[in-house]
Each structure stands twice: as structure tokens, then as C-alpha cells.
């Protein structure tokens, strides 16, 4: 179920020009190839990867936060949500992507990829948000009520800010997870950094492309993780005191 972009990616692979000696020998790293394909292959793939990730994390955040807030008020909701999302989470990505392809109306599309990616974020963010909310000390909530805050104001001004470190920890794990899984999504939706990886494999295991695209996926995950740590520090300045 691999759909490859058309057109040769390795310029003159097997041709005679001396300029492509490195590509023909399939050495580990051909800087020439990278500079020639950066703007046509690698940069677009990186941008698509970021878009795929952001869409999945934003939708997943919306769903899981809503579910967590419901479960915070109605405790019985937690168990069914955890059971369903755990099962979704356990299914290997390769299998889930393919299973969704079989669902009428999804097929080989970005929607299919996003449905799978979103389903993997739910357990992580739901559990973290709910845990964070439940660990707000009862005295603090009582104090908020004593100051005359209604349930809604208390939630927005007290509970959610105190749960923020746990919530952002969930977003961090979910983001990095989605970046990782989006490479596999290229199997059913030919975009993102997985596309050049799969293409390199089918192209006589072209090493430069494997290493550069794989390295970019790893670098993107580390960068996103770092940025979210900075976001957490900015949003919860009081936690710095403890650490």
C-alpha cells in the first residue's frame, strides 16, 4: 500500500556524469544530493510532517481534555474511556493505519492518517490531564470555594492552572509520539518525513536519503520536546521554585 511520488529522486542514478559519483556508489552521505533535493523533497516533507503533527495534537487535545473534564466531574466516565483508549493505544500503528484504510470513506488519505494519529494521543493526554486535576489539593479547592468562586471560575482560575504541568507533560509525550508515528503514516498518506524514507528504501536503499530524513525526524522530535518544555516553564513559573 505504498504510494510513491513520481519522478526520480536520485538525479541520474546510474548515469555517467562524474558529479553523481557519490550517489551512484550509494555512499553514506552525499552533501550534493541533500543540497539539490532540500527544497523539492526534504523541506516540503518536513513542513508536511509538522502540519500532520499539529493537526493531530490539537484535535487530540480537544477531545481528551473534554473527556478529562467530564471524568473529573463524573468519576465513572474514567474507566470506559481508559479501556477504549488503551486498546487503541496498544494496536501497532502499522496495523491501525491499514485497518482504517479498509473503513469506507477513509481509504488512502490524510484523514485516515489523522484519525489514527489522534487516536494515539487520547490515552496519554486524558490520563495526564485527569491525574493533574485530581492532584489539586482539596484544601486549595475549598479555599477557592470559600473565596466565593463558583465551580466554573474555580476550574479556570485554580484547578486547571495547578494541573498545567501535568497537562503539558501529556502534550509533550503526545507530540513526540505523533512525530514518531507520522513517519509510519507515509505508508497510507504519502507525505511527511516517512515519504522520503520509504522512497529511499524502494530506491535501492539510498543511504543518504535514509539518514537525512531519519535524522530530520529525530531532530524534529527533540526540538518539539524542547520547545514544549520552554512553554511549560513560561506557563507555570511557580514550578521553577521547587526544582
Amino acid at each position: 500500500m505504498i504510494v510513491f511520488a513520481s519522478g526520480p529522486v536520485i538525479p541520474n542514478f546510474g548515469g555517467s556524469s562524474a558529479a553523481y559519483a557519490c550517489e551512484r556508489a550509494n555512499r553514506l552521505f552525499c552533501p550534493n544530493w541533500v543540497s539539490q533535493n532540500w527544497s523539492t523533497v526534504l523541506w516540503p516533507a518536513l513542513r508536511q510532517h509538522v502540519v500532520l503533527t499539529v493537526i493531530a495534537v490539537v484535535i487530540g487535545f480537544g477531545i481528551s481534555t473534554t473527556l478529562a473534564l467530564i471524568a473529573y466531574r463524573r468519576g465513572w466516565v474514567e474507566r470506559p474511556v481508559v479501556i477504549v483508549t488503551s486498546i487503541l493505544y496498544t494496536i501497532p500503528s502499522l496495523a491501525l493505519f491499514e485497518l482504517l484504510v479498509g473503513v469506507p470513506g477513509l481509504g488512502l488519505s490524510r484523514t485516515t492518517a489523522e484519525v489514527a494519529l489522534v487516536s494515539y494521543t487520547l490515552l496519554i493526554m486524558f490520563r495526564n490531564t485527569l491525574t493533574g486535576l485530581r492532584e489539586v489539593p482539596a484544601e486549595v479547592r475549598d479555599a477557592a470555594a470559600g473565596m466565593g468562586m463558583g465551580p466554573m471560575r474555580s476550574l479556570l482560575r485554580v484547578d486547571l492552572p495547578l494541573a498545567m504541568p501535568a497537562i503539558i507533560a501529556g502534550v509533550r509525550i503526545a507530540t513526540v509520539t505523533v512525530i514518531s508515528l507520522a513517519t509510519v503514516a507515509a505508508l497510507i498518506d504519502d507525505e511527511g518525513l516517512g515519504a522520503p524514507i520509504l522512497q529511499a528504501i524502494s530506491n535501492e536503499v539510498f543511504k543518504t536519503e535514509l539518514i537525512v530524513a531519519g535524522g530530520m525526524a529525530i531532530a524534529l522530535a527533540l526540538l518539539a520536546d524542547g520547545l514544549l518544555v520552554l512553554l511549560q516553564r513560561a506557563l507555570t513559573p511557580w514550578t521553577k521554585v521547587r526544582t
Partner: peptide, 19 residues
């Protein structure tokens, strides 16, 4: 554990195959 979380398995496999 934290760094490992950021490693996409397909990328690790791909780089492993390349080397």
C-alpha cells in the same frame, strides 16, 4: 528514557539499514 521517546522507530530502522 526521555531521549528514547523522541526516536521514531522507522527512522531508527532506516538509519540502521543505511549503516
Amino acid at each position: 528514557g526521555n531521549i528514547w521517546r523522541a526516536l521514531p522507530s522507522l527512522a531508527v530502522l532506516a538509519i540502521g539499514v543505511a549503516f
